[in-house]
Amino acid sequence: MSGSNELSRRDFIKVTTGIVGGLIGAVIGLPTVYYLIDPALREGGKESWVPIGKFDDMQIGVPYPFSFTRVQVNGWERTASSFGGYAVRNSDDPADLLVLNSTCTHLACTVNWSEEANAYLCPCHDAKFSIEGEVLDGPPPRPLDVYEEHRITEDGIVEIFFKEA
């Protein structure tokens, strides 16, 4: 046996075990990876116009808080997620409306308007934003996000364009 090019019985068993084991590993392993990451591959992204309040109720210079809930089916359950923000009017001009997202740009806690501080404050890491959403203090990397697309219906209701993540 030794010196010949033929595979010894032992080596044959080793190679066969390796190949069969590798096959079983691959057949089970690859689907398993897919199984684990499957929810991350789902496409969400429903779009809609969401009413946030009457235009007449929004006073000039006072942030108008709003919130809304979207229901999504996650796995076997319907999950309600809350979103919110502040509508800020600077003048009588209906086009002069700023709609801020109240999700802090630092680590996604929710900011609240504080009358005394004259700023949006984040309870998590003491972030501070001006009425226009500019960073005044704290760790946020950028100003508050803005709902760019909004419109006023004939009934005087402000709606924002919302796209789910």
Binding site: P31, T32, Y34, Y35
Partner: peptide, 8 residues
């Protein structure tokens, strides 16, 4: 619902 859930 899950990819390859039936297999696992």
């Amino acid at each position: 619902g899950v990819a390859f859930g039936w297999l696992i």
